[in-house]
Design a protein around this nucleic acid. Sequence first.
DNA 1: GTCTATAGAAGGATAGAC
DNA 2: GTCTATCCTTCTATAGAC
Lengths: 203, 203
Amino acid sequence: MTTASRRPRTRIQTRNRDAIMAAALDVFAAQGFRGATLDQIAEAAGLSKPNVLYYFPSKEAIHEALLADLMADWLAPLRAIDPAGEPLAEILAYVRAKLAMSRERSRESRLFANEILQGAPRMGPVLAGELRALVAEKAAVIRRWQAEGRIAPVHPVHLIMSVWALTQHYADFEVQVQALIDGDPWEEAERHLMHHFTRVLAP
Amino acid sequence: MTTASRRPRTRIQTRNRDAIMAAALDVFAAQGFRGATLDQIAEAAGLSKPNVLYYFPSKEAIHEALLADLMADWLAPLRAIDPAGEPLAEILAYVRAKLAMSRERSRESRLFANEILQGAPRMGPVLAGELRALVAEKAAVIRRWQAEGRIAPVHPVHLIMSVWALTQHYADFEVQVQALIDGDPWEEAERHLMHHFTRVLAP
DNA sequence: GTCTATAGAAGGATAGAC
DNA sequence: GTCTATCCTTCTATAGAC
């Protein structure tokens, strides 16, 4: 209390802060930033509205905290692509990891989709900075693999984006997917995408 | 784009109604339903807010009119797949048409994406009805082509969804795409997707 | 048909008691 | 730390003059 730390210090602070983040993830993912209300977040967190604002200065601040948390984990699978690995196996592992992440963290995926759809008002700099740099780095790796004839010559950046599009689709458009698929969409999706990218990339 | 109305209208009514629809498409696509305000729509349409509500009973009614207009055009390319045509050519033409539509009507794509992301509160029935029926019909066509050995045996429904995911991505995530691609993303995307689906589908 | 003015509700944020 | 009460802004929608 005498120190100006932004981090929660007591157990109760940690617990409530986490509860707010979890509740806000639910609400922002389902309704978008403008559609979400502090009332909804407070109720989902089991707190009063003023108490939520005791932990975060504003609705916007909660949203920003969620997005900041998101990016690190979100890019981990792409970071994990190993230039020294076997090309096709590396990329298929990436697809599998990204699909698993879409499945297990579909709310995060929709939070992100909402942000980008609205023109990335809060994450624009991250896209042009961190994301662009990482994609460029991995695109160079893929290009080298292609020059060595180890995978098919597909535009590397579009290839990476196609992995995003195809995996995130199952999370972001989940309602539509479930209206069209009777079984477990995720099981089918994994088989489909493995087969799909194997055909695209086999040299 | 003309929703055939049952009632005759004067020129000025037609003009204003169209102006409101066009303005609302801009605003809803960029901000989502909750994020959009009647003020923004009225200003973009060059009318006063009460005048907008003279033409439509509510904000919700404008949104519904846009979604209703959208679906017919949106499904046209899928409908156009010809069971009597050459399989690979038919599907590639579908991909090309869908990509062109994403490019030329990216606001409509984002309007739709917003609606699905939020759980399709207004279009749920259309997904489970009209869309599901059309997809089932075309999936049957694809399955027949596969049984005849004319294209590769890829899950037909996931194949159709992958066309959506890969084409709509360029519209819905346009900000992100532009942060990563230096040239004209759409030109590159067309080459990429033609190559991509040719490899996936060649028997 | 179009406008000004405003009602009425909802939502973000604050005050202050405990 | 948490709550009740409330302020103030924003937003949808309506009233009513012209």
